[in-house]
Amino acid sequence: MAKSIDVSDLNIYYGDFLAVEGVSMTIKARSVTAFIGPSGCGKSTFLRSLNRMHEVIPGARVEGKVMVDGQSLYEPSVDPVAVRRQIGMVFQRPNPFPTMSIYDNVLSGKKLNSKRMKKSESDDLVEKSLRGANLWTEVKDRLGKPGMGLSGGQQQRLCIARAIAVEPQVLLMDEPCSALDPISTSAIEDLIHELKSDYTIVIVTHNMQQAARVSDETGFFNLKATGEPGQLVEFNSTKQMFTNPDNEATEAYISGRFG
């Protein structure tokens, strides 16, 4: 249950402001794709356009095509709510629901949609998702406690558990480790490795070592020039990207000469 994503000629706007221009790429199923690039070049914007979260912001819109499993996401007949059920998202800052327990947070995707489940079914789903997010052993004795009571790294893994509990095809992660300590970060990187067998994963990261460690393919975004829109400079296998990139700008960025 993983899908590939085909993007062609995508322009992304905030009102009249063109934030990202002319992106085309193919994101492979059951692999990890990383986006790197300097701040403000449109990585988050692009990521959010992949599950129609971009249009949540007033005035935001998109031109171009995003095909998931042969279906175009931006057809008028497509329901954004249905898209988001298939393409889950983990945000930069952990954001568990403050009114819910750990247990309810994991089930929130179902509960908020008023899915009725038997107690045994939901118990199983909670355990499976928390195990999937490498959090089960740490929280199994306090599932009834508020999700906000966990540490930052645990909260982020709770958010991952919440995202995988709705069994999406694709998981988008926007700098999921940037607010976390090295140990939590490494726990999440391990998790990404495991999730790869079931999900298509797209991750934005500020940390190039992290991109090199976890991803199969990497996209480098950059601003054309200051004040110009962001664009995809190079999209390549991670190995090639970090050893022998095609583009000079990529090499400069990776070797730390700018950005």
Binding site: V56, V83, F91, F97, P98, S108, L112, S114, C159, R162
Partner: peptide
């Protein structure tokens, strides 16, 4: 962020 977390789980706006 909480609203977005909910949208990202495929929950409609009114819910």
């Amino acid at each position: 962020e909480l609203r977005e977390a909910s949208y990202a789980l495929g929950v409609p706006k009114w819910r």
